[in-house]
Design a protein around this nucleic acid. Structure first.
Lengths: 350, 350
DNA sequence: TTGTAAGCGTTATCAC
DNA sequence: GTGATAACGCTTACAA
């Protein structure tokens, strides 16, 4: 049905080997020849078959992306950014139809260990973007052994290129904003106890505690309530927070979804937001603006795109140095934060 | 690095041909042999290389999914459902590492026409789930010619298996709910004018107008405001609605995101929801529950999963008949709908 | 600079 | 029921 490399070779009056070289911009091809081949390929609308390409030892033009759950906002944005970048990229080897993106939710692959162990990811992808950390040493090794390029997002690993936001700083920014408004009792939703080392969550927890101490606020450990970074997680965490003897006047949630979940529970409990409880999230979720949520925003789509750029650089240029980038973050003050209310309840919010 | 079919053949004392047959459950393999091969494959942790498989004329174990935008909630849910089903499915040919999902946003592929024309989708996927309609006849033909199985989601095509909700009924359900509350002037956000034939949007529009007429409500064409099914689209549409001489007492939005966008604008304009304006969305977006949005819910994740099931059936069994399914929909009454307020404004909402 | 030819790991077609 | 063996379309030594 489709043109093969032989068709192109015939049309350009050269051998298939030359076509292969010319189309991939490899050296040792006369400019004139290269030109002729390119023309032939264009005429025939030729694009190399990725399967054949990969089987023969070349690239399969596929990059994988591992995220916790494709249904989450964050992961979806990341994926969207990556896919768009991949499709729009010009690093597509001229010859190719371009790279494609293969998403994996860590839930469905039965954990990263299982994935890198059993799954034939090695036979399917040339590169991998991993957005769920941390990554164990042996996992990294396995990936490298399989000849798969790797880029991390949301967390960094010493010897692996990657990009992330400064999670600690993000949490700190939120706390500082609240401290500046006069709050002294600030909670954290999504705080971890001990668990993981360099996970985004533990970093945010660290940023939170550091900021609390730095600003001289109430350092009550009970104010750091663990919980999943989801709507439900936020709701659950808020319930626990409400059981505390002294309810805080403000809280930082580890994600906007968590913040929205918490907000709902707080309002149901009769707390005015921001009157009696100020809330700030992290992410700048699409709906944040529409529910008036103050948050520390990050450009997730941009990060997805950037991750792809990095990966493609490694893939096509085999860059040696390990690039680590920090994506910016910024405070977006909206309507869920304000100064703490005086002791006695009174109206104020429209 | 990885075991090949030859390794398995050697270990099972048979030829590669037999291994191939045995592992794919093809006929003409003695039970004992089949057993032995399976054991050998298991021992060696053998999984067929999809590239080789596809190149040789078999399946590449990849299904593609085309959606408008991976960043949208609906598309993300659909993808998540499909991916999970694919990973969990047991129809994975025993031999295989299972099928993988390749998502394409129609934005990035430059429109469906371009996609099916230029892109090497034919060399990459065995099946396609298309969630953006309508599909033109010649596009369907192209897909069939490429030997790619096809399933549609969200809309139906005569000769193609697919599943969808009853869009018209969904919109009708929303209108009926509002009519039941006593509203007589009900708007539609996302209404189309003429455009597409069988798109979800036009179906919802039809369901809306039919219900309006059926219930004898105000049939003012200006109440059907076109707009994108997004937060922004909802906000924009709401602005236009507010400019109408007689503002409606209730509205149906074509998606929850649209509803949330509209709600924000309405409240900013000083309208109490549901006091002065009742709002109902469609989808049951994750956050809908948390913002108290009344909506006509659908199970998007379930639809993604079901689409995969259908596709896999066609792929593995070559089923002949064209299956069309309708996914259920149900009204979820929350806090954005209520009876229309009496003429004069007065308090009521906590 | 270019061509020849040997794989790459499967599947499919035939004989047996 | 099973086993050779020829594709499949491409990449990559190695020759020329």
């Amino acid at each position: 049905v489709s043109a093969t490399i032989e068709d192109v070779a015939r049309r350009a009056q050269v051998s298939v080997a030359t076509v292969s070289r010319a189309l991939r911009d490899l050296p040792n091809v006369a400019p004139a020849t290269r030109e002729r081949v390119a023309a032939a390929a264009r005429d025939l609308q030729y694009v190399a078959d990725p399967s054949a390409s990969r089987l023969a030892g070349g690239r399969g033009l596929t990059v994988g992306m591992v995220v916790p759950s494709l249904a989450r906002w964050y992961d979806a944005q990341l994926l969207a950014g990556a896919e768009a970048e991949l499709a729009g990229s010009d690093r597509t080897d001229a010859r190719a139809g371009g790279y494609e993106l293969l998403p994996f939710s860590s839930a469905s692959i039965g954990g990263m260990d299982h994935f890198f162990g059993t799954r034939p990811f090695r036979k399917r992808v040339d590169g991998l973007i991993v957005a769920e950390g941390p990554l164990e040493e042996d996992q990294i090794e396995r990936i490298a052994d399989a000849g798969v390029a790797l880029v991390t997002v949301g967390f960094l690993h010493e010897e692996t290129p990657g990009l992330t936001i400064d999670h600690a700083a993000a949490a700190g920014l939120a706390v500082a904003h609240l401290a500046g408004l006069g709050h002294r009792r600030v909670a954290l939703l999504g705080g971890v106890d001990e668990t993981l080392r360099f996970s985004p969550l533990s970093e945010r927890y660290r940023g939170y505690t550091d900021a609390i101490e730095g600003a001289g606020l109430d350092a009550d450990p009970r104010l750091a309530v663990p919980g999943a970074c989801s709507l439900r997680g936020g709701a659950d965490a808020m319930h626990r927070l409400l059981e505390l003897p002294a309810v805080p006047t403000a809280l930082v949630a580890c994600s906007d979804e968590m913040a929205i979940g918490a907000m709902q529970v707080a309002r149901d409990a009769g707390l005015r937001v921001p009157g009696e409880l100020s809330i700030v999230g992290i992410d700048d979720h699409d709906v944040a603006e529409y529910v008036g949520l103050t948050t520390v925003g990050q450009d997730v789509i941009g990060q997805g795109a950037r991750a792809v750029q990095l990966l493609l650089e490694y893939l096509t240029e085999g860059t040696a140095e390990v690039v680590h980038e920090t994506s910016p973050t910024r405070l977006l003050v909206r309507r869920t934060t304000g100064p703490p209310a005086p002791r006695s309840p009174r109206s104020g919010e429209p």
